[in-house]
Amino acid sequence: MNKPIIGLTMGDAAGIGPEIIVMALLEKRVRDICKPLVIGDTGIIRQALQIINGRATVRKITEIGEARFKKDVMEIIDLDNLDSGLIERGKVNPLAGKAAFEYLQYAVSMALKKDIGAVVTAPLNKEALNKSGYNYPGHTEILAELCGVEQVSMMLVVGNLRVAHVSWHLSLKEACNFLSKEKILTTLKLGLQAVGRMGVEKPRVAVAGLNPHAGESGLLGEEEIIHIIPAVKEARGQGIDVVGPIPPDTLFYRAKKGEFDLIIAMYHDQGHIPLKMLGFFEGVNITLGLPIIRTSVAHGTAFDKVGKGTASPESLIKAVELAVQLTNKIEERRFS
C-alpha cells in the first residue's frame, strides 16, 4: 500500500505548533508511514527548526503538485498570507489567527478533493482567531462549516481509551440544556463508526451520567431519566452493546481496566479531564461526522513553552499515526 499524503496545518504561528511539527517530521516513525505536507509559513517553520537545533531543508511550494517528499526535506505549501516579522512568540496576534484559519481552510479543501488522505492540525489560539474576525470557539465548529455538515462530535483517544462528547465548546449551563436523547444517540453512532475504523469489531459502549451518581434515580437530577436512559434503551433496541448511565467517577476507572471500548461523555470536561490525566502527551483529538479524516493534538498553543525547544511532539505524532491508520482502513475497504 502506498504511503498516504498527510496535510499538517501549522496552527497559530505564535504558538507551539511550528516547533512540534518540525520535531515530528524529523522522526523516522513519521516518515516511514506517510508523506507529510505542511500548510503554513516557510519562515516560521525555518525559525522553529533553528529553535530545536534540527537539520533539514525547508522547501517552499505553492501547490501539492510541486511536492517531492524527499528524505530530510520539509515541504511547506506557503499561502504567503503572513509576515513572520510581525509575529512575536507566545503573544496573541490576530494576524496569526487569520493565517491559522486560512491554513485549515486550504487543507480541508485538499482533503475534500482527495488530494491528501487526512488533515492533522496543530493548535490554533481561539482568542487570536476571534480577534481576526473568525468567530468560532474552536476547530470542530470550523471543520463542520467548511465540510457542510451539521452532526459532528469530538472524540479524544489515549491508547485504547476512546471518549466521544455529546457537547464540547459550551458553558456547563449550556451543555446541560443542550442534552437530548437524539444528540446522545447521534454521538454514540458517530463514535461507533470511528472505533470500527480503528479495528474494534464488537465495541462495548458505556454512557456516562450527567449528575453525581448518575442522578441517583432522580434525587440528584432528572437528565438521566429524561434523556440518557431513553437513549441507551433505544440503542440497545438497535442491537448496540451499550450500558449506562454509569457514574463518571467510576466509569473511567472501569474503562481503563479494559471493560469498554467507547465512552460517551455528556460534556467537554467530563471526558477531557480523565483522558488528559491518563495521557496528556499522547492524547489525540478526532472530529467525528466529517467527510474527511481530521485528527489533532489534544493540547493548546502552549504560549509559555514557545521558543524553548522543550515541547513534546508526542501528541502530534500520535495524531499522525491515527490519521494514517484511518486513511489506510478506508483504502483497504475500497479495494476489498
Score class of each variant (00 low, 15 high):
Ser153His: 00
Gly15Asp: 09
Leu179Pro: 03
Ile229Trp: 04
Gly43His: 11
Met23Phe: 02
Ser109Pro: 02
Leu290Met: 10
Gln47Ser: 14
His213Asp: 10
Ala323Phe: 14
Asp304Gln: 08
Phe69Ser: 03
Ile64Arg: 07
Val92Tyr: 11
Tyr253Gln: 10
Leu290Glu: 11
Val306Met: 10
Lys233Arg: 14
Leu172Ile: 15
Arg236Asn: 09
Pro18Trp: 01
Ile225Gln: 11
Ala122Lys: 13
Ile61Cys: 10
Ile263Lys: 12
Leu104Ala: 03
Pro230Lys: 12
Asn125Val: 06
Leu26Ser: 04
Leu82Tyr: 04
Val324Met: 08
Ile292Ala: 03
Leu185Tyr: 04
Leu262Cys: 04
Gly15His: 03
Ile330Ala: 15
Asn125Gly: 09
Gly90Thr: 06
Phe303Ser: 10
Asn125Ser: 08
Phe303Thr: 06
His169Gln: 07
Arg31Glu: 11
Gln238Glu: 15
Ser217Arg: 15
Ile5Gln: 04
Pro123Asn: 12
Glu216Gln: 14
Thr140Gln: 03
Leu188Pro: 07
Ile16Glu: 11
Ala194Glu: 03
Gly279Gln: 07
Glu145Asn: 06
Leu210Ser: 12
Met266Gln: 15
Ala67Asp: 02
Pro94Phe: 13
Pro274Gly: 09
Met266Ala: 10
Thr327Phe: 05
Arg29Asn: 15
Ala194Ser: 05
Ser336Asp: 13
Pro248Asn: 09
Asn130Thr: 13
Lys256Ile: 09
Gln238Val: 02
His299Tyr: 08
Leu25Gln: 00
Asn53His: 15
Ala122His: 13
Arg162Ala: 06
Ile39Gln: 00
Phe252Thr: 02
Arg236Tyr: 03
Val324Cys: 06
Gly54Pro: 11
Gly138Arg: 11
Ala194Trp: 01
Leu278Pro: 07
Ala118His: 12
Leu251Lys: 06
Gly43Ser: 15
Leu219Lys: 11
Lys329Gln: 15
Met10Leu: 12
Asp41Leu: 01
Met154Leu: 11
Pro274Lys: 07
Ile228His: 02
Ala99Val: 12
Thr42Asn: 07
Glu282Cys: 07
Met155Val: 00
Ser153Leu: 01
Lys3Pro: 04
Glu63Asn: 15
Lys202Ala: 09
Phe260Gly: 04
His268Tyr: 12
Val120Ser: 08
Glu127Trp: 03
Gly221Ile: 03
Tyr267Trp: 14
Gly15Asn: 08
Lys3Ile: 07
Ser217Glu: 15
Ile292Arg: 01
Lys308Ile: 02
Glu19Arg: 13
Ser109His: 10
Glu223Arg: 05
Val205Cys: 08
Met155Glu: 00
Leu210Gly: 10
Val284Gln: 07
Val166Thr: 13
Ile184Tyr: 04
Val38Ser: 02
Ile142Met: 10
Leu156Thr: 03
Asp32Ser: 15
Lys98Val: 05
Lys202His: 14
Pro230Asp: 12
Pro313Trp: 01
Lys183Asp: 04
Ala99Phe: 09
Gly239Trp: 09
Ile51Trp: 08
Asn160Ser: 14
Val30Phe: 00
Asn81Lys: 09
Leu251Asp: 14
Ala265Ser: 13
Gly15Arg: 02
Thr42Asp: 05
Gly7Asp: 00
Lys126Trp: 13
Ile45Glu: 01
Leu188Asp: 11
Thr301Tyr: 04
Gly54Gln: 10
Gly244Phe: 01
Ala13Phe: 05
Leu156Phe: 15
